[in-house]
Write a protein that binds this DNA or RNA. Structure first.
Lengths: 189, 189
DNA sequence: GTAGTTTTTGACCTAGAAGTACAATACCAC
DNA sequence: GTGGTATTGTACTTCTAGGTCAAAAACTAC
């Protein structure tokens, strides 16, 4: 009972994620969030405890999405190489918008001072690394990749690269360069 | 003529850099800056036009420092490999403090919205990449590194890796892991 | 010492960020 | 339709970030 909510919480979180992605945490005001989600500030604070809480939910949702995408991508059989390239391109945000990765932005902006952000970033990064490790191991077993370096080590390198690329994607330079870097890395496996 | 300044501008900029490094741009208030530099807010704004201007100076100084360090490091003769490892460890801020790189933080926090930050970050990254390229090329000529991948491509990969590592350094996980990643990358050349 | 500069200090100002309060609204149960 | 409950919109409050200002202080030139 009571008046029904006029918006869906999940889509609201998605829209908030979008804003935080483009403008950063400090750079996004409650007013902008309310307008962006198409609701009033009252509803905003009635639904989400605080700006920070909403930010954490957005990051959580982002993590889920990314992991879901990765799991789907690598669950099918077939050659790993092209899919690994695709995964890196998507995770680094090298697509049209060139906006990098929210989680990387969050970690860089707040990592040193905000433990909660730190934890969720660490969690996502660790999971991504695990997916990479499995994918590489699979590629090595099938003979697609060389086995002279351990999957563990390679996964760490891939993770670092993808994070670095997500920063470079935003910073500038022509977009194709980064595609070449991805190719170089993955073709070297 | 006039009252002499009670502090050195350069050391003030250094201290400001330190604060921005630890707390980010938005996370550092003028009051903290004044206290941190050991001066009053009046002097702060008398010497530096604005918080943003001071930030840019801090980033500029950081860039100079880093490039000076790199140039010195690679100007001497001898094997490249250990020095490349050292450079990456330092640039990624993998040392004791594990605080990453200010420029990476700045790019991630403000890159999308602040063109000036974007430009200076792009500039530093480009220069670092150039140093890497030269170092790799030198290592290839001397036979220390394999020549089956171009120095250009490798430099891009090293740059992306070092940026990624600087994010990971802050985010968490045991420190040694990252040393292993650096070793893995550089030993693979 | 005095005049002329420039710096310093800290109180002061203003805008807007973050969050709250509350009346109006929209539903359900009966 | 009445009572109870939950949501909505908006005006309001609080606080602080970012910056300014005026008067005192510290110098140089004469």
């Amino acid at each position: 009972m009571g008046r029904p909510m006029q918006f869906e919480t999940d889509t609201a979180v998605d829209k908030a994620m979008e804003l935080f992605w483009r403008q950063g945490y400090a750079g996004t005001t409650p007013q902008e969030l309310a307008s962006g989600l198409g609701i009033g500030k009252g509803s905003l604070y009635n639904t989400f405890e605080s700006k920070h809480a909403l930010f954490m939910r957005a990051l959580g949702r982002y993590s889920e999405r990314r992991l879901e995408y990765l799991t789907d991508l690598f669950s099918a059989p077939g050659p790993i190489r092209p899919r690994l390239k695709g995964a890196m391109t998507v995770l680094a945000g090298l697509g049209e918008h060139r906006r990098g990765c929210v989680m990387v932005n969050a970690a860089a902006e707040l990592g040193t001072t905000d433990d909660e952000v730190n934890r969720i970033a660490d969690h996502l990064f660790t999971q991504i690394e695990a997916v990479f490790r499995q994918a590489v191991a699979q590629g090595q077993e099938s003979g697609e990749f060389s086995i002279d370096r351990g999957a563990e080590t390679i996964a760490g390198q891939l993770l670092a690269s993808v994070i670095g690329l997500s920063v470079l994607a935003k910073t500038g330079g022509p977009g194709e360069r980064f595609g070449a870097v991805v190719d170089g890395i993955v073709d070297g496996l």
